[in-house]
Structures are given as structure tokens and as C-alpha cells.
Design a binder for these strands. Sequence first.
RNA 1: GGAGAGGUGGGUGAGUGGCUUAAACCAACGGUUUGCUAAACCGUCGUAUGGGGUCAACCUGUACCGAGAGUUCAAAUCUCUCCCUCUCCGCCA
Length: 421
Amino acid sequence: MLELKFIREHPDLVRDGIRKKGETDRVDEILKLDVRRREILGNAEALKNTRNRVSEEIGRLKKNKQDAAGPISEMEKVKQSIKALDEEFAGVESELNSLLLNVPNLPHPSVPEGKTPAENQEIASWGDEPEIDFEPKPHWDLVSKLDIIDFERGVKITGAGFPLYKAGGARLQRALINFFLDEASARGYTEIQPPLMVNAASATGTGQLPDKEDLMYTVPKDELFMIPTAEVPVTNIHRDEVLVEDDLPLKYCAYTPCFRREAGSYGKDVRGLNRLHQFDKVELVKIAHPGVSYNELDSLRGDAEELLKKLGLRYRVLLMCTGDMGFTQTKKYDLEVWSPGQKRWLEVSSVSNFEAFQARRMNIRFKSRGGGKPEFVHTLNGSALALPRIMSALIEQYQTPEGKVVIPKILHRYTGFKVIG
RNA sequence: GGAGAGGUGGGUGAGUGGCUUAAACCAACGGUUUGCUAAACCGUCGUAUGGGGUCAACCUGUACCGAGAGUUCAAAUCUCUCCCUCUCCGCCA
């Protein structure tokens, strides 16, 4: 969320950002409530000041065994007025708060303005269209023949979007997870195994709540949410903490399953591994000094790209336009891998800077070396990488005419085999 | 799930209704001393927010002692509800 003070002082900047993101502009309502809020506050505080002074006086009188009945009955009236003002204040404040929670983060100046995915900018690419001298099959054909991913039985056990990985498929996925985690550790990320369910405070901190509740699976009896990404528990590690400047940036990596309800998709978008309700992901999270967060964003993106290069997968990098970027981000890159069997790009990573947006909600601050007031940190994260689409790209790119899959060399020591089928 | 004990600033930890503007210590920061390090000594030091101002550094109000409600002229302190932690018991991979 943005600071009320910032909105008060730069309403036009905020309006502009809201417009670029295509969100609803309620700045005027916010400013109006803000004025009202301060009005009430001023009145209530003046009365409380009276109460404090007179109460002290009463204490003194009683101590000296003097009569205090006059001031006491006077204060009884003041007490009623304070109560009324406090109640009004609480009402205004909660209304204001829910408006503030719905103000999106403002896009960074370097982000192109646009409304639809068509306006995202391709800013880098790596690798060529792989040379396959036969008609490459989509992964869902290959994995069924090889019997390494079982979609039908996943449906039986749970439902659509919950596939069952088997034998070489299970093994390949585990190999990729280990590979990703080892690479992240080598780059200085501390490995975390977080809880897979979070409470409402954590989900609010990263921005899933209040308005994206429908994307998450819930556990109503215990008021918990299945995590849609490791971003939620990992970024919340330091909620309500004051960090030491010298410790920044904090870098974490975590492998977790992710659970998403993702209502409303259809057709080829959900075919095979393209869109699932449960999938695996290795996530990178950084908690950074505000002065360097955009450098950290670029190096985070580099860390994710390196994995694709090592796997030899063709990919491109998109800089997301203002309208396609999401509520909480200031700048976001998507990494898309080429799927030869489907002849399309698949998003495998999304790398974002949130600046202080999440930090403010989570109250994560740092104290600088020279003392001074605590400041909010910047939070960043990126997938490195989302497993299912890497699985499909990899299986499609390294397929043979006989329908086998050749494993890239770098994974051999993780899989223990060189070919599936 | 049952019983008991607790939750106080960055940390440890005093504080049972009114000189508490939350003691003290540690950490941190600034300074003095010093050939260097260490130590010692002196000083500064919670957060949020309103108002004023010679608009970052000053003055002033208010709130905050796990969360919320209540009693009272007055609550860290008393009452109730909830959350969490610890110890013991039960259950359990």
C-alpha cells in the first residue's frame, strides 16, 4: 500500500499511476476522508489533553485530601464526548484503510505504458529455434506414451489440474528442483523450507488479501490459506522486524508446491502441464536496500536466466507494460521459454520489484548504520523457475523421433539417467 | 485436547490505579582519551501520527506495554474475551 501522506502530497502522481495500471481511481474519496480524519483527530486529541491535565490535578487534590468532586463530574462529560469522537474516528479510519489497500503500486518510470499483453516489450532473447527435423509432438502426447505423467489418475484422485508424476517424470522433476536449488545456493541465496499454509496476516502482507482471496485455496476451519507461491511465506519471514542495514540484501530461495484456484481458463491454455492447480516452483526472494533495488531486480532476473541457458532452452525476456503488470509491482519482467511442440512461448518466471509496497504492509524496516529513523526495505522476487512449463519445454525440445526424451547433460548427475524411454 | 506460568522498546528485564515524560542494563550511534586495538569515561538513543515552525536536525499535542472490549476523573497495572509462547500431561508421524 502507498502511504497516506504520499497520496496527500502527490495526488496527481498517484492518479497517473492508477490510470496507467488501469485501476479504479478513488483518490478524491481518499483525500476527502483524510481531511475528515484529521479534523476528528484534532478535536479528540484536544479533549484528551484536557482529560490528562485534569486527571492529574484530581490526583493532586486527592493526595492533599482536598475536594475533587467538581473536576470529576466535569470530566464525566468530557469522557462521553471523547467516546463519541473515537467511534467516529474508527469508522472513518477503517473506511480509509480499505480504500488504501485497494490503491495499486505505482509503475516505475522505465515501464512502458500499455493496456494489454500486446504492449509488453521484448527486451532480450537467447537461443535459436531448435532444429528438429521431424514434426515435434506436444508434451502431453509424449508423457502419456512414456507413462511418466498421469493426468487421468490425477483427476480421479483429486480433480483436473492435479497431475501425477511417475517414474522418470517424477525423477526428472526432482532433478530439476535440486538443480535449481543448488544453483541458487551457489549464488548466495539461503535455502528455506517454509510452511505451505499461511495465516491471513501473511497473505495480506504480500498482497493476496483482501481482494485476491479467490485465487487461493482456503482451510476455513483453521483460517489458513494454501500458499499460491513461496513468495508469501518467505517474504513474511521478516514481517514486523527491524533489520540491520549491513545484512542487506537478504537473499532466500525456496522450493514449494504452489496451489492456485485459477478460475476461468480454457482450451489449449490449460492443456497438459500449461496451467495447473498444484505445481512446483523454486522461488527467489530478496529484501533489499531501497537505493539498490533496481540493480537487485536485474541481477535477480540474471539468476533466473542463467538456469535457462544451462538447460539450453530458448527463451525471451519481456518487460511488462503498466496495464499487464499487476497490482503490487512497480516493474516486472517475464521470462518465457519456447515450446517447440506447441509452437508458443510459455511463461516460466516472473521477476518483480515491489519497492516498499509489501514492506509497508508487512512493516519490514531497516536501521541504517549512522543511526536515524528506520526505513522501509524494498522486496523483490522471481521464479527460478516454475517446474511444469520447464518440464514441458524440456521434454518437447529434447524429444527424439521415436518419442524418447534425451536429458541435458547438466542434469545427468541429478537424474542418474540420460534418456527417458 | 487438559493443567499451570507468562507476553513490557532493537535485545535482556523492573514496574499491582495518580512525580512513569516507561527504571536499569546490553546493543547501536556521537565524542574524549589512545602509537594501534581494547578498555574506561561523557553524551545521544522507541514507534506512529496531528499541529506549529527559520520545513530532514526545533517546539508541542495524542496514541501505543500481545489483540480487542470494559470499569474509572485517571489503566502497563483491575475485569472479560481472544491470540500466542513456555512447562507438564494426553494424543501422534
